[in-house]
Amino acid sequence: MNNDEQLKALYQQRKSQTKPPHSTRQLLLAKARAEQVKPSYNLWNWTLGVSLCAALLVLFQYVGLFHQQWQPTYEVIQVHRWHEESQTEELAAVLAEKARIEHADNYARYLQGQQIVTAHHKRLARLVNTEDGWGLQTCDQELVLLTAQLVEQLLNSRRLEQQLKKGDEVEIAYDAAGRILTIKPASKLSC
């Protein structure tokens, strides 16, 4: 037997002569058994915990539902901004041309309207006879032909003086659309 083995054997021999106090074992086991009863408490706590969680869940759902009910409904409005839209140069040119034409049309219509309004105020004429019926010769040497149907309509609606005859000077009133409203004798023709 070498020295290490001898020391080991002596150590084991020494240890075998010692005995841990029995009271420690008893105390320890009593305490462990007392703690072992706790599973019922744990079960109770566990049940309590689950109940609390469930209650919280229900509460959250209720609050969520309530919140959802009170939320106003919005309509979605899509906002487009011209400068934000990506467009090609060709498209821009087309749109510019379209706008220009539209503007020109509007301006032409405006000028035409102006002419009509101006004519409405200014137009004086001399009543003449033509092959097709009556005619009105204006100061700027324009001849407005009145069809028999129109003369009849004007007479029926008393917009044309019945005593008018060839060579009479008349004043023609137009509406804004350029239609003849009335033809009545004028005091003098001042072309």
Binding site: R25, L28, L29, A32, R33, E35, Q36, K38, P39
Partner: peptide
């Protein structure tokens, strides 16, 4: 588990 018997065996 916290089982007392296991602690006894360890002891």
């Amino acid at each position: 588990s916290g089982e007392a018997a296991l602690l006894a065996r360890l002891y």
